[in-house]
Amino acid sequence: MKQVLIDYTLHLADDSLILGQRNAEWCGHGPVLEQDIAITNISLDLIGQSRNFYQYAATLIGNDSTEDSLAYLRKEEEFKNCLLVEQPKGDWAQTILRQFFFSQYQYLLFQQLQNGKDEQLAAIAEKSLKEVTYHLRWSSEWVIRLGDGTDESHQRMIKTIDELWKYADELFSATSYELQVASDGAGIDVSKLKEQWMTKVKEIFSEATLPIPGKTFVQGGGKEGRHTEHLAYILTELQYMQRTYPGCDW
């Protein structure tokens, strides 16, 4: 039982960390100063979430486990983030669309998780819900702005929907550890969130004059450690210092 809870917590932590890492790539390169601050704020929130989850996982694992040993010393196949968050940041359209998909999912997830039986996970979910609400609001507005902005922004949105849609499904395909933790009441069966997510996305897309794609071949496996080529590059940078200077304090 405990191992599945650890896996679940790591999955939640990894999602937030990898997306936080991707968003931080905009630092100093944003399209406008105010938005640079906005996206790095979101990045900071996500990293904060990941730290909470990792710290909890570390206590569950015991031994000498710490938030850093979990983030810096695991290999790609041990990471349980979904494929959506490891995709490149792309242009602004890709970043805000990916944020919208993810935040809408996180919002529904945390809303339920805050009432779950695991006190720690519930507490983290409750605390994170406020910031996720903001992320959702911010990214929804951008989807609308770019979808219903200029021809160019509209085209870029079409392109990025095409790029990212295939990764959305994985958010709602529950792994065995997710299902086990859900049946204990400590976690959430994400497959039950899909319909609501779809409804919300359709609402925003409609206002943004964007089309919902038809049947797409979906990609998954990240939550079970089968990643795209991107993750290895992300981890190479992320883990560089600790791997080059093992066992040091920073």
Binding site: L17, Q21, A24, E25, L44, I47, G48, S50, R51, Y54, E67, D68, A71, Y72, E237, L238, Y240, M241, Q242, Y245, C248, W250
Partner: peptide, 10 residues
């Protein structure tokens, strides 16, 4: 992206 700990990164 290469900060040596999560705390330092934040």
């Amino acid at each position: 992206s290469r900060a040596p700990s999560l705390k330092r990164k934040a």
